[in-house]
C-alpha cells in the first residue's frame, strides 16, 4: 500500500458513494447511464470472486464488499426503485460492442488459463471501457449535472492515481503487470476530454455543457 494506491481507492469509493447518495437524495437517476452501471456490476462481480478464494487483508475484503454492494444497490435504484426517472432514450450505447471484444481479448491476452485468471483479466478489460456508455450519454444530451460531473471526475482520477501507484511499485517492489497497466492507461485516456471540461467549466462553478 502506498499513498497513490490509497488515494486511488478513496477516490473510487467516493465516486461510487457519491452516485448512490445522489440518486437516493434526488430520488432520480436522470443523466446516469444504466448501461455503464451494468458494466461496472459485471466488472466487480468477475474481479471480486476471489473474495471466496484468496484473502489479502481486511481492508481489501471490506472495500470489495462495499464496491459490490454499492454497485448492485445502484442497479436496484436505477432499474427498480426509481425506474421511471431512468433516461433510457439517451442511454443508447450498444454494450455488446464492449462486452464481447473484452471477453475475446481476455482469452487472447491473459497471464494464465485458469477460470479465475480469465475472469480477472476480463474485469480489467471491461472496466477500461465501462464508462463509454456514460460518456456517450453526456455527449448525446450535451450536458451533465454538477454532481454527475464530480462522480465522473472521482471515477477517472482513481485509475490515474493507480498509474502513479504502478510506477511507484515498479521502482520499489519490481512489480509489473502489463495487462492492468495498459488497460489502466486506456481507461484514463478515455476520461481526458472530460477532465478538460471539468477543470475548465465545473471547477469554475459552471455547469458542464458541451458546445
Amino acid at each position: 500500500m502506498n499513498i497513490f494506491r490509497l488515494c486511488g481507492d478513496l477516490s473510487h469509493l467516493l465516486a461510487i458513494l457519491l452516485l448512490l447518495v445522489k440518486i437516493w437524495k434526488t430520488r432520480s437517476c436522470a443523466g446516469i447511464s444504466g448501461k455503464s452501471q451494468i458494466l461496472f456490476a459485471i466488472v466487480y462481480t468477475t474481479r471480486y470472486l476471489d473474495l471466496f478464494t484468496s484473502f489479502v487483508s481486511i481492508y481489501n475484503s471490506v472495500m470489495k464488499i462495499v464496491f459490490l454492494s454499492a454497485s448492485y444497490g445502484t442497479l436496484y435504484l436505477m432499474f427498480y426503485k426509481f425506474k421511471p426517472t431512468y433516461d433510457h432514450n439517451h442511454d443508447s450505447f450498444r454494450i455488446l460492442y464492449l462486452i464481447v471484444p473484452a471477453l475475446v481479448l481476455s482469452f487472447v491476452i491473459v497471464h494464465a488459463y485458469t477460470l479465475m485468471e480469465v475472469l480477472w483479466t476480463y474485469s480489467i478489460y471491461l472496466e477500461a471501457v465501462a464508462i463509454m456508455p456514460q460518456l456517450f450519454m453526456v455527449s448525446r444530451t450535451g450536458e451533465a449535472e454538477t454532481i454527475t460531473s464530480h462522480y465522473l471526475f472521482a471515477l477517472g482520477s482513481y485509475r490515474a492515481l493507480y498509474i502513479l501507484n504502478w510506477i511507484y511499485r515498479y521502482y520499489t517492489e519490481d512489480f509489473l503487470d502489463l495487462i492492468v497497466i495498459i488497460a489502466g492507461i486506456v481507461q484514463t485516456i478515455l476520461y481526458c476530454d472530460f477532465f478538460y471540461l471539468y477543470i475548465t467549466k465545473v471547477l469554475k462553478g459552471k455547469r458542464l455543457s458541451l458546445p
Binding site: R5, D9, H12, D50, S54, V56, S57, N60, M63, K64, F67, H111, W120, Y162, N165, Y170, E173, D174, F175, L176, D177, V180
Partner: peptide, 10 residues
C-alpha cells in the same frame, strides 16, 4: 517484474 500471485489491488 514479479509474478503476481494473489492480486492485492482492487
Amino acid at each position: 517484474g514479479k509474478p503476481k500471485e494473489g492480486k492485492d489491488e482492487l
